[in-house]
């Protein structure tokens, strides 16, 4: 691999929420480097803290949430120390932009789409009047919206779902960011549109040399776009590696479970795999490995001590005691092995 420049470095980040007098720990000591120009996918089930984790890069946590420890280093600044809206405004949009899940509600229903994109153009590119409008129209056609001049004056309700997501992406592009966070960018769209939006995001990434962080639970999307994958469980990254490593050489039992629950094309009659049990209660302090109670391979130590990261390769690290030298050798479950064989077959055909 060529040398990579770290653009965003998160160190031992903790995020907590105050909920009716109780404290919920949504992010428990995550460390992660994001490299310039890469696509990083953060996957995990609902409530695993993936949205909260990325929102903390933009100071967009809900009012009762805050970073309680750790650092978020970006261009020599520690974002975790930011407190005022004024500081965050220097980051939001200009440096880090975000695309939300639901394009139906991300746009102001009472302003024309053009005006809303133009707002970002004026704010971040210092253009005014006609220039700003022309630039906006350029962005609209950039994201594949036909008849951009007409569309400029239309309202969000005159756009279809896919078109709105394109407009949202155009808005994010108009901010001219370094990093784009896409929070489930395709979840609210129908399948045929999903592929187009993913394609568009990849085009934009190439054109503007963006770093994109995808948050998703759709492993299909991950396989298509991600250079690297981070698997989150209960507010922690349990496995991170290149997309190839995580898909073909997964080592954490939770990643196995996630992969096993993928529906397989052409496999009929088998019951779809689902992970037993429920995620841990984040109000309580978690002892040992958070996944242990649901993990069929759990060891005694999993209930006692939180596992450290074990390096599988320089790019691949896994938080599981199974990788310790003293642990018994465990093979991935049969479903995974069969799945891998099938993938390799498909690849051979291609």
């Amino acid at each position: 691999m060529e040398e990579k420049e770290v653009i965003l470095s998160v160190k031992d980040l903790n995020v907590i929420f105050d909920l009716r007098g109780q404290t919920l720990t949504a992010v428990r000591g995550i460390s992660l480097d994001v490299y310039r120009g890469e696509s990083l996918a953060i996957v995990g089930e609902s409530g695993s803290g993936k949205s909260v984790f990325t929102k903390s890069f933009m100071g967009m946590l809900d009012k009762n949430g805050r970073v309680s420890g750790g650092e978020i280093l970006y261009k020599g600044q520690d974002l975790a120390k930011f407190t005022t809206q004024k500081e965050w405004r220097e980051i939001r949009g200009k440096e880090i932009a975000m695309v939300f899940q639901d394009p139906m509600t991300s746009l102001n229903p009472l302003k024309t789409v053009g005006k809303q994109i133009c707002e970002a153009v004026m704010l971040h590119q210092g253009l005014r009047g006609r220039e700003a409008k022309e630039k906006t129209i350029e962005y609209l056609s950039d994201v594949g919206i036909t008849m951009p001049k007409l569309r400029y004056n239309q309202y969000p309700h005159e756009f279809s779902g896919g078109m709105r997501q394109r407009a949202v992406i155009a808005t994010a592009m108009a901010c001219n960011p370094e990093i784009l966070i896409c929070d489930e960018p395709t979840t609210a769209l129908d399948v045929t549109i999903q592929a187009q939006i993913i394609e568009l995001l990849r085009d934009m990434q190439k054109k503007y040399r963006l770093t994109i962080i995808y948050i998703t639970h759709d492993l299909g999307v991950v396989a298509k776009v991600a250079d690297r994958v981070a698997v989150m469980y209960a507010g922690d990254i349990v496995e991170v590696g290149t997309a190839y490593e995580v898909f073909y050489n997964a080592r954490h039992p939770y990643t196995w479970a996630l992969l096993s629950s993928l529906p397989q094309l052409g496999v009929k009659g088998e019951k779809l795999y689902s992970i037993e049990g429920t995620p841990p209660n984040l109000f309580m302090e978690i002892r040992g490995d958070a996944f242990a109670p649901r993990n069929p391979y759990a060891l005694k130590i999993d209930y006692e001590l939180r596992p450290p990261y074990f390096e599988v390769s320089p790019t691949h690290r896994v938080r599981s005691w199974l990788l310790d030298d003293r642990a018994p050798k465990v093979e991935p479950p049969a479903t995974i092995r069969r799945m891998l064989e099938r993938w390799k077959e498909v690849e051979a055909h291609e």
């Binding site: 939001r92 639901d102 971040h124």
Partner: peptide, 20 residues
């Protein structure tokens, strides 16, 4: 959501309040 999105694109609180 559109308020959050406006905030995410870096619009100031004052503009969000009055303009949106």
């Amino acid at each position: 959501d559109y308020v959050k999105f406006a905030r995410a694109k870096g619009v100031s609180e004052r503009r969000i309040t009055f303009g949106h």
